[in-house]
Amino acid sequence: VDQKKILSVHNNIWSPKKSYEASSSCFSRSLGKGRDSTALEMKHRELCSGKTIDWGKKMRRALLLDNIRVQSLQLRIKAMTSRTTEQSVSETQIPLTSGIKLETLNYIVTVELGGKNMSLIVDTGSDLTWVQCQPCRSCYNQQGPLYDPSVSSSYKTVFCNSSTCQDLVAATGNSGPCGGNNGVVKTSCEYVVSYGDGSYTRGDLASESIKLGDTKLENLVFGCGRNNKGLFGGASGLMGLGRSSVSLVSQTLKTFNGVFSYCLPSLEDGASGTLSFGNDSSVYKNSTSVSYTPLVQNPQLRSFYILNLTGASIGGVELKSSSFGRGILIDSGTVITRLPPSIYKAVKTEFLKQFSGFPSAPGYSILDTCFNLTSYEDISIPTIKIIFEGNAELEIDVTGVFYFVKPDASLVCLAFASLSYENE
């Protein structure tokens, strides 16, 4: 009985009372005035109308209006919360420098992982962010101390039975040994990432707090690398900015709205570029106007950024090829642009036409358009532009046109290569 309240059905609020029906006035009267307050009498608008009331009709109308009122409140709340979400999207910038000091030809950013500074190679062509981790079974020599999970209170192990571990398969293409655990689910999720140049990292998947510029994020999933080998120089690890669910971009979607940008600086003068997260238009204040091209969807290549290559020009001469209009990957970690053979042939032919009179040199590896430029101090190079869908142009930086195989300029090659066949 104590858990219930009794409603007298003959005494509910809808029962009209004679006193109200007979009321001649619905104006509120002042009920008195205190020193700091005034009291007004409150009456129900239906009950004081004085007219004969069809209660069934009134009830239906009241419920209808009530519903409209709730919908209105919901719309207002939705509008307010969506504004709040937009406001919570933040921006941050990190200096982006050459990795030459760390003996890598890649670009480096420094972030705080578990409160410790880590120098990471920036890579839009892979997904998992990882660092070399103690205790390490086989690590390359890095500058600075290895990340040590035992001294971090924010380090958390990712277990085999978690969805994060399953997502890793999609991102890396490697299942790790989790599949062979025969139901032993409380084991850590091991990962393996292999790169195109033969470099690799393997270790345990974990989560940790990370600070990107002035933005701190909790529980970032990363790889605690116990066995790492390859061309990473003295960097602490790698920042994966690909598109799968384990990439830094996907994990920070709510904070940065899936937007990041970079400006890669010249390596020679020690200049610093920026890696920026979030859609802060002030980042582009020193840029020319931004031209956009759609990211092409390919369900089989979800990790990659694919653009539609629609044209190219050498020294202002537009090239013709039936192979234009196809997807091309864009990657911050690849230096030599690979083109379908027919497009490469057109590039090579036009470049040689405009860059004539310089002594040629034998090819090197995949590069077959090479020169000996030892007897020249300054050379004039035709401008190369790559054009993407929507007429977005990327003008190749002058230092990216050639690959200096030999530093004395006796072997300098055009930094473009041909794929083996058109649809490779």
Partner: peptide
């Protein structure tokens, strides 16, 4: 040739917008 930074994209602001499924390019002296 290992994992080397892409010199060809130097001094460009390259904007990856995964929400709007687009990539922006602008010249910028870094």
């Amino acid at each position: 040739v290992g994992i080397i930074g892409n010199y060809q994209q130097k001094n460009q602001r390259v904007i990856y917008d995964t929400t709007q499924e687009r990539l922006g390019i602008a010249g910028e002296n870094c």
